[in-house]
Structure formats: structure tokens, C-alpha cells
């Protein structure tokens, strides 16, 4: 199912939670809404679910306007941050809930509901736990029950609010992979909210990066990582070093010295050079290179992480080449670099 968010705005009192946001999710897509807290990502998700309603703008499912339709009529599956399982019901009753609340004429027969629950318990790999209560399950198990409950109604759209937020790191990684497989196998369209960029980059087909109620960038994980559209995206996704520079007549100047870097189409004036630790090449302090003073060096994965300073600014560089001495002067050149006008 496709979702279109068209120029949606929402205020809570003085606070603008969403400001003229537009977005499209294609059928079968796994979309991540990524941003810091207060960026509006959860509000956007709740609006797609029908748990909140926009002040202006539209929400369309497969071209049909759903803007004012309440959650109960949207046929969506929603997985809540803290699972929101019904504590007084068994796991099986939790999963069956969406089917048993249907109007009598649409409600499956009791045996069919039981069969569907059994099928879902298999799907979430908890076949023997139907009679337990949520309080008797681990966090990861609860999360899977919450997912099964959402899937029981055969939703056209699966929405997940920080689905792994409350889990420990190991469980989180396993569940992530499992969820992605499930999404592909069931042919769902899914949208999930996260503040964890690693999670978004690993799981999603496309990532929507939000900040202060607006969308900063929409793109594949590769695009948002390698080609951040804004300084915010560059900083928020992955590690980034930032150096203040000046753009003058097609050249990039650092303390008046030109760097071997293309200013792209930037207008003259103060600007900011952004580069990732692996994007810098460590070399001599030659003209055209960014001068640094080397600090501590430590092993990090397959490469060395060099801590250095540019004036008073700490930068980090990954290198596999010959390691410089502590306190040595060196220079940085760049394969690829982002440059943004200074704020």
C-alpha cells in the first residue's frame, strides 16, 4: 500500500510538532523516520495511524483521503514503544483481540481465530506460550507478541514506534533482522520510528531524517550517509568532523590558505567543511592540505583511529597507513567532502 503525506502541519499549543511535511511511502517499502526527540517523527507516525490528526494537510492511503479517519477504521498494525500489551489477557487473547472486536458479521468463527492465533504464535517463534500472561515474558518475547497482535488483523500497513527501544543490544540485533525478513515475506508496507541511526541505516529501504518538525532529507541509507543534504544530516548520521572555512571566488580557504577541495556551487562567505573519519587521507603538512597536530592513536576495528587537532578543534581520522608520532604535524587531503554555508 502506498502512503502519501501531503503538506501536513501540527501544533501542540505553542510547539510546532510538524511544519508543512510531505512524504511518500511506496508499496512494499520499509521506511525509517529518524531524528532526535522532539523532531516530530512520532507525531508523524501517529498521524499515519490515526492516533493524532493534522491541523492542516492530508494523509492518503492508496490515493484515498484518510485524514480524518479514526485509527479503528484504518486497518493498520501499530506496535507501541512499550508494547502496550493487555496485561489481564493471555498472550493468545492479546493476539486474538483485533479479530474478536470485529462486528459480528465480519468476525471469524472461534475455531478460525484459534487457528490464526496458532499460526501467528508459530510465526513469532513462541508456539507454546499462548496461555502465558505478558508479565511472564521477557522483553524480546513481549515485543514479538505485540507484533503478532498487530499482524493478526492482516493490516495493509505496519507502523512501529521505537520498536527496539526497550531491549538490550543483543536481542535488538536479532529482532531487527527477523523483522526485516518478516516484512519481506509478508509483503508489508512498513514505517518505523527510531532515534538510532545505526538501526535506521541497517533496516530501512529509505530513511526520512527529521529535525524540529521538518524533513531534512529523504534517501536510501547510502544517500543520506554519503551525500547528506544538510549540515544536520551530516552530523546526525555517522561520525563527522566539522572545520570552519571561507569560500572565496571558487576556492576554499582555511586561515587564508587554499585547500585542495572543490567548493561546489557555494557562494562566497563563511562555510563549514564536513568530512567523515574515513574520508580523510593522512599525509604531509604540504600546501593544499588541512594542517593538523597528531594526538592519541588507538586501534579501532581493522584500522587505526587518529585523534588530532585543527587549531582548537578535535578531529578524528581513520587510517591504515604509516602511523604518525604523537605531537607531529601532518596534513589532511580529501577524497570526498561536504561543504555547507555556515549557519
Amino acid at each position: 500500500m502506498s502512503i502519501v503525506i501531503d503538506a501536513v502541519s501540527k501544533r501542540f499549543g505553542q510547539f510546532a510538532a510538524l511544519n508543512d511535511v510531505s512524504l511518500e511511502a511506496r508499496p512494499g517499502e520499509f521506511l525509517a523516520l529518524l531524528g532526535p526527540s522532539g523532531s516530530g517523527k512520532t507525531t508523524l507516525l501517529r498521524m499515519i495511524a490515526g492516533l493524532d490528526f493534522p491541523d492542516s494537510g492530508h494523509v492518503l492511503f492508496d490515493g484515498a483521503d484518510m485524514t480524518g479517519t479514526p485509527a479503528a477504521e484504518r486497518q493498520i498494525g501499530f506496535v507501541f514503544q512499550n508494547y502496550a500489551l493487555f496485561r489481564h489477557m493471555t498472550v493468545a487473547d492479546n493476539i486474538a483481540f483485533g479479530l474478536t472486536v470485529r462486528a459480528r458479521r465480519d468476525r471469524p468463527a472461534k475455531a478460525d481465530i484459534r487457528a490464526r492465533v496458532a499460526e501467528l504464535l508459530d510465526l513469532i517463534q513462541l508456539p507454546d506460550l499462548g496461555h502465558r500472561y505478558p508479565a511472564q515474558l521477557s522483553g524480546g518475547q513481549r515485543q514479538r507478541v505485540a507484533l503478532a497482535r498487530a499482524l493478526a488483523v492482516e493490516p495493509r500497513l505496519l507502523l512501529l514506534d521505537e520498536p527496539f527501544g526497550a531491549l538490550d543490544a543483543k536481542v535488538r540485533k536479532d529482532l531487527r533482522r527477523w523483522l526485516r525478513e518478516l516484512h519481506d515475506r509478508l509483503g508489508l508496507t512498513s514505517v518505523f520510528v527510531t532515534h538510532d541511526q545505526e538501526e535506521a541505516l541497517e533496516l530501512a529501504d529509505r530513511v526520512v531524517i527529521m529535525n524540529r518538525g521538518v524533513i531534512e532529507q529523504i534517501g536510501t541509507p547510502r544517500e543520506v550517509y554519503d551525500m547528506p543534504a544538510t549540515p544536520f544530516v551530516s552530523e546526525f548520521v555517522g561520525e563527522t568532523n566539522r572545520i570552519p572555512v571561507t569560500v572565496a571566488d571558487g576556492r576554499v580557504l582555511h586561515h587564508g590558505q587554499a585547500l585542495d577541495v572543490s567548493p561546489k556551487a557555494l557562494a562566497n562567505g563563511p562555510a563549514e567543511l564536513h568530512f567523515r573519519p574515513h574520508e580523510a587521507l593522512l599525509g604531509d603538512d604540504a600546501p593544499g592540505a588541512l594542517p593538523i597536530v597528531v594526538g592519541a592513536v588507538h586501534k579501532r576495528g581493522g584500522t587505526w583511529r587518529v585523534e588530532a587537532r585543527v587549531d582548537d578543534i578535535a578531529v578524528e581520522i581513520d587510517t591504515s597507513g604509516p602511523l604518525p608520532e604523537r605531537g607531529a604535524r601532518a596534513g589532511l587531503r580529501f577524497d570526498d567532502v561536504q561543504i555547507f554555508p555556515a549557519l
Binding site: A72, F78, N82, L85, F97, V101, R149
Partner: peptide, 27 residues
């Protein structure tokens, strides 16, 4: 009582009355 439990019931298609009688009242 968390709002999320009631919202969960709503997203699963429960009417407000069903949410009250089957989720809130037992709680």
C-alpha cells in the same frame, strides 16, 4: 493506566465502548 493500551485497542479496530469494557474495565 497508560494511554498506549487504549490506543493499541483502537488501532486493532476496537470501538471506544469495546476498549472500555474489554481493556479498561478489567484493568
Amino acid at each position: 493506566l497508560g494511554a498506549d493500551v487504549e490506543e493499541a485497542a483502537a488501532t486493532l479496530g476496537a470501538t471506544r465502548w469495546q476498549t472500555f469494557s474489554r481493556v479498561i474495565l478489567p484493568a
